[in-house]
Write a protein that binds this DNA or RNA. Sequence first.
DNA 1: AAGGGTGGCAACCGCCTCCAC
DNA 2: TGTGGAGGCGGTTGCCACCCT
Length: 560
Amino acid sequence: MRVSDDEMISKDCTDSPLMDESNCGGSASGGVVLKKGPWTSAEDAILVDYVRKHGEGNWNAVQKHSGLFRCGKSCRLRWANHLRPHLKKGAITPEEERLIAELHAKMGNKWARMAAHLPGRTDNEIKNYWNTRIKRCQRGGFPLYPPEVCLQALQESEQNRNSSGDRGQHDLLQANSYEIPDVIFDSLKTNQGVLPYVPELPDISTSSILMKGLGSSQYYGFVPSVVHRQKRLRESATSYSGYDGSARNEPPPFDQIPDDSYDNITSQSFGLSFRCDPDPITKNLLPFGGNQGSHSLLNGNFSASKPATTVGVKLELPSLQYPETDFSSWGSSSPPALLESVDAFIQSPPLSGTDCLSPRNSGLLDALLHEAKALSAKNHVSDKTSNSSTTPPTPGDVTHGYSLDTSKTKWKEYGESTSPLGNSAASIFSERTPVSENSLDENPPAETFPGSIMMSEAVEQKTWALDGEKKETAAQLDFSRPDALLGSCWLGQSVTYVKDRGGVTTDADADAAAALGDDDSHNNDYKPHMGAGTALNQGWGFGSCAWNNMPPVCQMSELP
DNA sequence: AAGGGTGGCAACCGCCTCCAC
DNA sequence: TGTGGAGGCGGTTGCCACCCT
């Protein structure tokens, strides 16, 4: 595997394992050039000996007292990550994988805190594992979290909501210790590259979790086309290795999937309700995750280490940024307080001559408008070609008439009082603090702001959809409301049904729905289909979805 | 067999927080 | 109260081995 420490010695620091600037990089510190790079076994021995004598801490003294030419930070890291007793080496076990996923769902990128729950594992180890994992999930087209984690988070969120009551804003403002989970920002990252404006953030915990679990990944959109199919197949087979080995979560073997349905399936894995239109003309109009580099997701890609696309999206969070954005177009005359306090950095959306991106590099809004056009065209085509188009438009049918303008209008209508444009940053981030941190965290239970009412409704929608007893209410769901879309969507797979139009509906779909408690998911006539909700999940609901029309197949009126 | 791509890992960097002075 | 050092944390980079074409 890796070269041994002894080999490192010979390779890196032949003459002196402690100091050999000819081979090792170094930095001057107080006249002493400190060594950098891989540690040697000799250095390890010195450090271990030092710690044994003096204990941990005071790392800067190590160099002074031990003759080790390493900075204190380097010593601390080396000790913590490799030399500390009781470190667990070796591959992450399935149990640990599950725990990490669960912890990450609750904590976000709090590696150190996660490590505290994984004895013997270091934050660096967990971080590396996770970063690798999300790459794998991205390439394999799988959700970042296993369904059971999503479900658990959902249940916990429900409990949390029920127990948190209706404490008002005042309490929340006083209890300023709530935590903003990283998952929020991660979700924001996903979108910021596309949308200069992030509307009201709904249920922080559950939605963000489910967005990942059912629809999107934390950092990445879906970039299937850039990965060789065979590669994807291989990785797909291993992506869920950690989830108790159950085949439940695994998609059907790809070699059993017709080519023309492959993209469909993978799209659904990422919450896309668009069926891949075999028509090469309309294919280019795929709004999300399309092979042509649809920038909705590509632009939202956020790599932990390297940009996934040629267009960098450097986002420093927690922060939102809205460069050169006409905020008045969003229904507010001035940027909200939140926007003034953040310092994110967004570059222009990616441009490509081959996809449906804006032909003009004139800014995010243009790109959005252009994409909306493309979506409208796509929807139009879908309406003509899809059997389901026989269903007349209904208020809840997002297939029709959901344009960007509509979005804006609706947002104005509903969002004046509750949108972030009118809310404080706190209201945005504090709707729901992390899913019941329970014993894991000291965070107080979530509080509720007035603006959270919308999300509560969304949760209710989910609830009755799962119960299957209030179907009629489903038809009343107003998908034109961005919040409603967002709220309902993170249930996309189980809530939204479409009549099977003969297309491929994967077992993964059904399983995902079943995992969320819907026993009818295997119904012959109705297949769970990731609809508006999960499409929204692709990019926090607003970035690449809500503002860019809704998928054409979410028809709540067809709920079984 | 060679070259490129990718995964896994170790280590570094920069920022932040805490705390002593 | 301000300031600087130490430690902690998360993000990023670089290297190496492995795999695939």
